[in-house]
Computed example of a mutant assay.
Amino acid sequence: MKILETLNETLLNKEPHKKDECLLDIDIYKNVALMYCQIENSISVLSDMRDNKSYVYKSNTALKLGLSKGKNPSVVDSIWEEEILKKIHPDDKLKKYIHELRFFKLMDSLDPKARTDYNVVSRIRVKDENDEYKFVQHRMYYIYSPYNGKLRFSLCLYGISIDQSILLPSDFLIINSVTGEVIVEDRLNYTTILTQRELEILKFVGEGFTSKEIAGFLFISVNTVSRHRQNILEKLKVKNSIKAFKESFH
């Protein structure tokens, strides 16, 4: 999945110079993650962008989502909490990745002093203990190092959503938690612009599949895929399909 490769290249602080090393005390942030887990009965994931590790803290909510509880924290040699991510609905997982890249770009454009005002709030579908999709609220916060100005930690919280109505879609928002203002809404709903088939094809394009591969997935001809791709370009007024994906999903 190319969006995941892009996120890794964007988020991870590779080979930091000693003089630029972040001196934040990780134990302080581990305690914050544990506190959220205990007080909110959430699954709390602290990811370290410098060391490419995650520390996962689980409450009884983990059991409701069919996850093993184990001891706190469990340590993952990646910034991605794969045990949780693999249970997210495929469409929501792709949107989650895209939304996180959009959040990083927004934060990167802000004055460092303003970054603490913003966070991600999402409503996503996650398989539960009965292998059925349940709505989960996902929140994400970024912690930047005051020593080198780089993103050091992300804190992700997963909790059962109060509203389980299937009439409401999945939500992906960036909010200013000081003002309560929604800064960025999910722009992935293009039903008024693109057809469902065009959306499917655009998603496959964004994942790096060729027209021939997409035709095989959807049981249609390559010519039909090409025609849909051309329609997408015309509707979104862009020059190529990759740009269409970036314009639509970033």
Rank of each mutant, 00 (worst) to 15 (best):
K2W: 06
L4P: 00
L7P: 00
N8H: 13
N8C: 10
E9T: 10
L12Q: 09
K14A: 11
P16R: 11
P16W: 00
E21M: 14
L23P: 01
L24S: 07
D27I: 09
A33F: 01
A33Y: 00
L34I: 10
M35P: 02
M35R: 11
M35N: 10
V45K: 02
L46I: 08
S47D: 03
K53Q: 05
Y55L: 04
V56D: 02
Y57N: 00
K58H: 05
T61W: 05
T61A: 11
A62E: 05
L63V: 13
K64C: 02
L65Y: 05
L65A: 05
G66Q: 09
L67N: 00
P73K: 05
E82V: 06
E82T: 14
L85D: 01
K86D: 06
I88S: 02
P90H: 09
L94G: 00
K96C: 07
E100T: 03
F103I: 11
F104L: 12
M107E: 10
S109T: 13
S109Q: 06
L110G: 08
L110D: 08
K113E: 14
A114G: 04
A114W: 09
T116N: 10
N119H: 12
R125W: 07
V126Y: 01
K127N: 04
K127V: 06
D128S: 10
D131T: 05
D131E: 14
Q137W: 10
M140C: 13
Y142D: 01
Y144G: 00
Y147R: 04
Y147L: 07
N148L: 08
G149I: 08
G149L: 06
L151C: 15
S154V: 02
Y158K: 03
I162W: 04
D163T: 06
Q164H: 10
Q164M: 11
Q164Y: 13
L167M: 08
S170D: 04
S170Y: 02
V178I: 13
V178E: 08
T179H: 07
V184P: 00
L188K: 07
Y190C: 03
T191D: 14
I193E: 08
K203R: 15
K203I: 14
G208P: 05
G208L: 13
S211Y: 09
K212G: 06
E213T: 15
I214P: 00
A215D: 00
F219S: 11
S221C: 04
N223H: 11
T224L: 14
R229W: 05
N231R: 12
N231V: 06
L233D: 05
L233W: 11
K237M: 12
K239N: 14
I242F: 11
I242T: 12
K243E: 15
A244F: 01
A244E: 01
A244N: 02
A244L: 04
A244C: 10
F245A: 09
F245Y: 15
E247S: 13
E247F: 05
S248A: 15
S248F: 09
F249T: 02
H250W: 12
